[in-house]
Write a protein that binds this DNA or RNA. Structure first.
Length: 293
DNA sequence: CGGCATACCTGCAAGC
DNA sequence: TGCTTGCAGGTATGCC
């Protein structure tokens, strides 16, 4: 599930049940997720007050009162749920459907208000790491990370600059977290569809010889910004077994125009094409060959 | 360095 | 029904 909009949705769901509270106890139920937990993981977190729950690209970034920073990545199947001391669950966060099981509850943060933040991850592609506020920007996960696709850093000039001379397919360039950090397979497909651009086109074709943005580059810039904003507004998409804690599905999935719509009619006005799927650098790409050029 | 394939791990849907 | 196969939102690594 989690691309940037989903991680932002999780962050917003967790923040009210985390910020300002002390992490009284950490239950770490296995030695590793995708990677081993860092040394002294429990010791460095227990007793700390969690000052803020932030996000950078697809990472959750939790700041502690002593400068420790907990970095969490949800991988492909990671999710959080919140359980309150009353036994209630809270709406707003994503979690793996509990009718399945709690077998994959790997970490439980017991907070000072009696609530629990529970990390569940069937595939264990997620990971957690510790760094410090001072070392955050240069830690291995963030050191080479590109700009956020939200906010002012994303501009057609920026895109033209990093795409110039690149022979990689546009799709691959957009998935490259060193250029733009936070886009994944779904939203790249959606942004390219909105901009009417072929995923096969070279990234370099969006810049002129002098490195200025082409008209296509302008369209893509707007498309990326809008698709991410729309998805965050919708509370992230929800695929397969992901549901909100109140049981409702994330509903951006109903807005997919390309992703997962193989064989269905293209939704571009007056376009009579249909969505095709093919494999590009090992991943499924969905596009309309008729209106995406 | 760029670009690509592969590995990591589990669950689910589809096909037989 | 039950088996096998392929596919899934992620990143890291190694090979040319």
């Amino acid at each position: 599930m989690p691309e940037l909009p989903e991680v932002e949705t999780v962050r917003r769901g967790l923040a009210p049940h985390a910020e300002g509270l002390v992490i009284e106890r950490v239950e770490q139920r296995r030695p590793n997720l995708r990677f081993p937990f860092p040394d002294d993981f429990i010791k460095r977190l227990e007793g700390r007050r969690l000052v803020s729950m932030g996000r950078r690209a697809k990472y959750l970034v939790a700041d502690m009162d002593d400068g420790t920073v907990l970095i969490m990545h949800l991988g492909m199947s990671g999710s959080f749920r919140v359980e309150l001391s009353s036994g209630e669950e809270t709406p707003g966060t994503f979690h793996y459907d509990r009718s399945k099981s709690t077998t994959h509850d790997h970490v439980v943060f017991h907070m000072s208000n009696g609530g629990r933040l529970i990390y569940n991850d069937p595939r264990r592609f997620g990971f957690m790491d510790l760094t410090t506020r001072a070392g955050l920007a240069t830690c291995k996960h963030f050191e080479k990370m590109g700009i956020e696709p939200t906010g002012n850093a994303l501009s057609s000039d920026y895109l033209a600059g990093v795409f110039q001379h690149k022979k990689a397919p546009l799709k691959a360039a957009l998935l490259d977290q060193r250029l733009i950090a936070g886009l994944g397979n779904i939203y790249v497909c959606e942004a390219l569809w909105r901009a009417h651009l072929s995923p096969k086109r070279t990234a370099g074709s969006l810049a002129t010889k002098t490195g200025k943005p082409t008209e296509a580059c302008e369209r893509l810039t707007v498309a990326i910004r809008e698709v991410i904003a729309d998805a965050i507004r919708a509370g992230g998409s929800s695929l397969r077994d992901y549901v909100h804690t109140d049981g409702s599905l994330g509903y951006f999935q109903h807005s997919f125009a390309a992703y997962n719509r193989e064989g269905e009619p293209c939704r571009t006005n007056n376009c009579t094409g249909q969505i095709e799927r093919f494999t590009q650098s090992g991943r499924s790409t969905f596009h309309c060959p008729k209106c995406q050029r």
